[in-house]
């Protein structure tokens, strides 16, 4: 029933004009596959992407996306994918404070985005962050610096017509005292996609549950449309299946 790239429940739930998408996941149900889907979608539509990869090396994403029918190496060579390999990124050196490193990183992203604006390319730029909690580790726990950086990226969405996809591990912020980052992100977000494990435990056919909350701030016509979606998912090599509980063929 479900087709990849369009017509599935996730596409329907996400609507069209989400500027800032926040993906929340936890140890039991990794949400990286949503990030992969969105990255593929961003590149497939003729757009560009700036990918801040903190969790995995390029070879990993390349192989994963290739199985989904999206050649990252090619996009990278054509200049449509700006890949920032931040696995070894560290700003904690004594002489240069972390804020400087973030400023530098931001200016690189800005340059990439501006280059797209000048060129003939019509497509939108999507900034993808995998994942933001590691950026906090880079900053040695200085949430303010991360928030500053995020805010700058956020301004790009209005100034340069970018969109933002951010992965965050929600369970890290479950405690009362350190919710800052998560709360800020939820506030920024037009769309929150949350992956959670099934309460009944592991299953081979259903890998977990997605809840999509669409704030729909940007498009009037969807005022009547559904805001909250809940459905199950199964991750596959070439994409993912989305289905309502119990309605799987």
């Amino acid at each position: 029933m479900e087709e990849y790239g369009g017509g599935d429940l996730l596409t329907e739930a996400m609507g069209s004009a989400a500027r800032v998408v926040v993906i929340e996941d936890c140890v039991e149900a990794p949400g990286a596959f949503v990030l992969h889907l969105l990255l593929k979608r961003a590149l497939a539509g003729g757009g560009e992407a700036a990918f801040l990869a903190l969790a995995q090396p390029f070879s990993h994403y390349d192989r994963v996306l290739r199985k989904m029918g999206c050649n990252l190496s090619l996009h990278r060579r054509n200049g449509r994918l700006h890949f920032f390999d931040l696995q070894a990124f560290s700003g904690g050196a004594r002489e240069s404070p972390i804020a400087d490193s973030f400023v530098q990183l931001y200016s690189e992203i800005q340059r990439a985005v501006e280059a797209n604006k000048i060129g003939e390319n019509e497509g939108q730029v999507t900034i993808v962050v995998d994942d933001i909690s590691l950026l906090e580790v880079v900053a040695h726990g200085s949430v303010d610096d991360v928030l500053d950086f995020l805010h700058y990226c956020f301004t790009l969405t209005s100034e340069m017509d970018c969109s933002l996809v951010i992965l965050i591990h929600e369970d890290i912020y479950a405690g009362e005292e350190n919710m800052d980052l998560l709360l800020h992100l939820r506030y920024f977000a037009d769309l929150v996609v949350k992956a959670a494990p099934l309460s009944t435990g592991l299953a081979a056919d259903v890998h977990g549950q997605l809840s999509v909350v669409n704030k729909g701030t940007f498009h009037k016509q969807s005022a009547k449309s559904q805001k909250v979606w809940n459905f199950h998912f199964k991750v596959k090599e070439n994409g993912a299946d989305f289905f309502y509980p119990g309605s799987r063929q």
Binding site: H60, V64, L202, K236
Partner: peptide, 9 residues
């Protein structure tokens, strides 16, 4: 490695 599908034991 190089896959998005979780291992279900």
């Amino acid at each position: 490695p190089n896959s998005q599908v979780p291992v279900i034991l």
